[in-house]
Design a protein around this nucleic acid. Structure first.
Length: 862
RNA sequence: GGGUGCUUAGCUCAGUGGUAGAGCGCCUCGUUUACACCGAGGAUGUCGGGGGUUCGAAACCCUCAGCGCCCACCA
């Protein structure tokens, strides 16, 4: 009769698309700028567009969407700032790789053609991602999409650049920067990943006889560019050499021996070779001692201009060759191999980064970073969870100047023009350089424009209505891994551009998604998870719920297919429960019956609903997604499905459930609203079917009702649950099948009388008939007693085992209670309520022990 | 080297002073009128080791051990 029914797959276009269109039609994605309520905005991160949805993006969007949906249901003018169309080096890399398959590089195409190709690729992949985000129920305002390269953002970039330049915070200088010989561009400090690699530490003797000195290096080839040898000024071993010159081997250049505080006399020989053009430390030493910069590597990292035979060799070939030659000359004093040391790699392509002397544009970060740190220190901006704020401070307080120029073609062109006579001008929006000027060929670091996101997307620098209404934004939700890249920079630029207004008041940081063993996901490991696959298999709601359920503030989450399957099961459970409720006439029509007039079962579920609503509300407001999901899960599954529906079945079956139909309708109505942000699609479908309402997306957020708090009702049902569980355990131990009906007689206190029939229904215990054999078996739970007529004899062995186990447990409880109560310290210092509780526990164990002992004695001796 | 976490049931993780929890997995029984993507029942942990504070510690302090992440210009 009952037919198995499964909900539709809410990730399929047929089911998801109409719901989505409905939300659009309901105006859900258009923020109500006229709303009186305080606006609520969330900033979403600009994902690295790679053409497919990364699980990390899915997590970002899920959490953000949950907050936005909740706020909109609460009546806020909530807005979600989009950020899909962001351009990074990653974007350029993808296209370069495509070109490489045809044996081409970007230089073969030329700047214009290349940018065109990137655009083409982006519109395809960007579109694909938009569609994928939609399947998660993403409540982004699509009309605000595509900001990166359009005029709106360009204007913001030009404005901020000029302001910073005029304020003296952008400058051009020749510095040692991180250079990627593969990408052929400068990259900033944080785009360099350090890893401990196997290298070599080679000690080389410079000079002859008494004036010789030994230096050690891991990059032997750089000795070709040495400009000096440095020692510590207080190092007695070398004082006689300071100021002298020495011959640099292979190159035969005379180089001075200088004294510099930077040198650590404890390390190695206490003498260090100085290569100002190829090492940041050495560059500084060079500056202090006016040393020349010998550039010996090309942008491709090929040795050049040394006048030696090594010219033309790749840096790594040159390293070997130089060692070989020096060894032949007897100048190698020691070689340590392998020598493990930190080596910088390009974050994008993993190529070993080369420190290179180069003329680049920088942002002077001192004042900006200070302000960014102070905003958090002064409490203007809160980092959630707070435990991650030291990470922020550590970085913001120790930041180097930020290299913002990139020798790439995709991105915002640096708005600096050079005149024929060496003039330098910066053009703001709507300004043009005079004829004959040429523009700087470099583009800006992608994070330069990203840092403008919170206000550029709102129309800044224009004083738009959106900007007035929604800036500063309320909360930024993102992974902690992006704290330095993006968050700190938004803080710096936001504070600068808007005269001290921080771009958001809360930074909510979530963790990273890892595989089911808690291991980092990586392509090479093959443990990457594709959220789209899971959405296809289990539905978008299941993926969302899984991600939200795992999102404990600031900590990583392990994700496996089993969890997603479990969430899908939960969705199915909800689907079936609602279907069952509606079959039994659950309704939202009319007023809720007077609370006091309801039976304890109804009052209990309303009371439980009440506390669930208030707790979930608090948890979501404090970004405790995982705990909110747990509460909802257990309320829906345990309280509602396993207990309320089971206990109400008898009333529904006998047609005596008028009030319960209304209560059940109310509970589901409220529960579905509460769950909507977490499982948008299925709740929309169920809620509209149940209530006939237009859309749950525009329904009011549920509020707790203090009148529905009912401690007495909860206590009574708790006892009913204990009784039922005990009887079930007995039946199970006795090997009585769940479906087998047995006759039984209830002896219970007055307050249980009203619920006897419900309990009989659940327990499958029939009223006694003629010939009822009362002596067969009596179960006692507290003051409650059930006599059962077992047609077969009682399984004495099983029953003895069961009772013995209960007895042992009770005795153990009694023991711990007695120990506590006879402890003078405890009695003197423990708070009153704890003492009362322990005393009650003791009383209970006393009566339990007596009852169980009696039962044991009455058992036939096998 | 600096910073910061973690160590609780087979696995992944909750749990900030009052008798140890969840999900998954495992064992037994079961098509009972929502649901086998299910129901009922069950087993499983001296809460990393050692000290200390406290009437009472998984939780607070010290220490040791192991693991992780971030940052870092030590040749």
């Amino acid at each position: 009769m009952s037919q198995r029914e499964l909900p539709p797959n809410f990730s399929s276009a047929e089911v998801e698309a109409p719901l989505y269109e409905k939300w659009v039609a309901a105006g859900y994605f258009t923020p109500d700028v006229a709303s009186d309520k305080v606006p609520y905005t969330i900033v979403i991160p600009p994902p690295n567009v790679t053409g497919s949805l990364h699980i990390g993006h899915a997590l970002d969007h899920t959490l953000q969407d949950i907050l936005i949906r909740m706020k909109r249901m609460k009546g806020f003018a909530a807005l979600w700032l989009p950020g899909m169309d962001h351009a990074g080096i990653a974007t350029q890399n993808v296209v370069e790789k495509q070109l490489a398959t045809q044996g081409l590089s970007r230089h073969d195409l030329g700047r214009e053609e290349f940018v065109k190709k990137v655009w083409e690729w982006k519109s395809e992949s960007g579109g694909a991602i938009l569609g994928q985000m939609r399947r998660l129920g993403d409540s982004v305002d699509w009309s605000r999409e595509r900001f990166t390269m359009d005029e709106g953002l360009s204007k913001a970039v030009l404005t901020i650049f000029k302001r910073l330049y005029d304020a003296g915070l952008i400058y051009r200088a020749e510095r040692i920067i991180n250079w990627c010989p593969r990408c052929m561009t400068a990259i900033s400090d944080i785009e360099v990943d350090h890893s401990d690699d196997e290298g070599e530490l080679v000690s080389i003797r410079y000079g002859e006889g008494e004036d010789s000195i030994v230096v050690a290096t891991t990059r032997v080839e750089t000795m070709l560019g040495d400009a000096a040898v440095a020692v510590h000024p207080d190092d007695a071993r070398y004082t006689h050499l300071i100021g002298k010159t020495i011959t640099l081997p292979l190159v035969n250049r005379q180089i001075p021996i200088v004294a510099d505080e930077h040198v650590d006399p404890e390390f190695g020989t206490g003498a260090v070779k100085v290569t100002p053009a190829h090492d940041p430390n050495d560059f500084e030493i060079g500056q202090r001692h006016s040393l020349p910069n010998f550039v010996i590597l090309s942008p491709e990292a090929i040795v050049i201009g040394t006048g030696t035979d090594f010219d033309g060799l790749d840096r790594f070939e040159a390293r070997k060759a130089v060692v070989k030659t020096l060894r032949a000359q007897g100048r190698i004093v020691a070689e340590k191999r392998p020598y493990i040391h930190a080596v910088g790699h390009c974050q994008r392509c993993d190529t070993t980064v080369e420190p290179l002397l180069s003329k680049q544009w920088f942002v002077k970060v001192d004042s900006l970073a200070k302000a960014a740190g102070d905003a958090v220190r002064e409490g203007k901006v809160k980092i959630e969870p707070e435990s991650l704020s030291p990470r922020y401070f550590e970085w913001v307080d120790n930041m180097h100047d930020w290299c913002i120029s990139r020798q790439l073609w995709w991105g915002h062109r640096i708005p600096v023009w050079y005149g024929p006579n060496g003039e330098v001008i910066v053009t703001g929006p709507d300004e043009n350089a005079p004829a004959g000027y040429t523009q700087d060929p470099d583009v800006l670091d992608t994070w330069f424009s990203s840092a403008l996101w919170p206000f550029s997307t709102l129309g800044w620098p224009e004083e738009t209505a959106d900007l007035k209404k929604f800036y500063p934004t309320s909360v930024l939700v993102t992974g902690y891994d992006i704290l330095f890249f993006w968050v700190a920079r938004m803080m710096m630029f936001g504070l600068f551009a808007t005269d001290g207004v921080p771009p958001f008041h809360t930074i909510m940081l979530h963790g990273l998604v890892r595989d089911k063993f808690g291991k980092k996901m990586s392509k090479s490991r093959g443990n990457s998870i594709d959220p789209l696959e899971f959405m296809d298999m289990y539905g978008s709601d299941a993926v969302r719920f899984t991600l939200a359920r795992g999102a404990n503030p600031g900590s990583d989450q392990a994700l496996a297919e089993e969890w997603v399957a479990g969430s899908r099961n939960f969705a199915t459970k909800l689907w079936n429960a609602t279907r069952f409720a509606m079959m039994n006439g659950a309704t939202v029509e009319g007023d809720l019956p007077e609370f006091e007039s309801l039976n304890a079962i109804d009052r209990w579920i309303l009371s439980r609903l009440n506390s669930t609503i208030s707790e979930v509300d608090v948890l979501l407001e404090t970004y405790e997604f995982a705990r909110a999901c747990e509460l909802i899960y257990h309320f829906a599954w345990d309280d509602l499905c396993d207990w309320y529906l089971e206990l109400s079945k008898e009333a529904f079956a006998t047609g005596t459930a008028h009030d319960s139909k209304r209560v059940l309708g109310h509970v589901l109505d409220q529960l579905l609203r509460l769950m909507h942000p977490i499982m948008p699609f299925i709740t929309e479908e169920l809620w509209t079917n149940l209530t006939g309402g237009e859309s749950v997306v525009i329904a009011d957020w549920p509020t707790s009702n203090p009148l529905h708090e009912d401690a007495a009702g909860e206590k009574l049902i708790l006892q009913v649950q204990e009784i039922i569980t005990e009887v079930r355990r007995f039946r199970n131990d006795q090997g009585i099948k769940p479906s087998q009906r047995i006759p039984g007689q209830f002896h219970a206190p007055e307050e249980f009388a009203r619920y006897e029939s419900a309990m009989r229904f659940v327990l499958r215990i029939d009223h006694p008939e003629e010939g009822f054999f009362t002596a067969s078996k009596a179960l006692e739970i507290g003051k409650f007693k059930i006599e059962l007529d077992l047609s077969q004899s009682v399984d004495v062995v099983a029953e003895r085992a069961r009772l013995s186990k209960d007895l042992a447990a009770a005795k153990k409880d009694r023991e711990t209670a007695i120990v506590k109560l006879s402890n003078e310290g405890f009695m003197a210092k423990a708070p009153e309520n704890v003492v009362v509780e322990i005393k009650a526990r003791l009383a209970k164990t006393d009566s339990d022990i007596e009852r169980i002992s009696t039962q044991l004695e009455q058992l036939p001796s096998a």
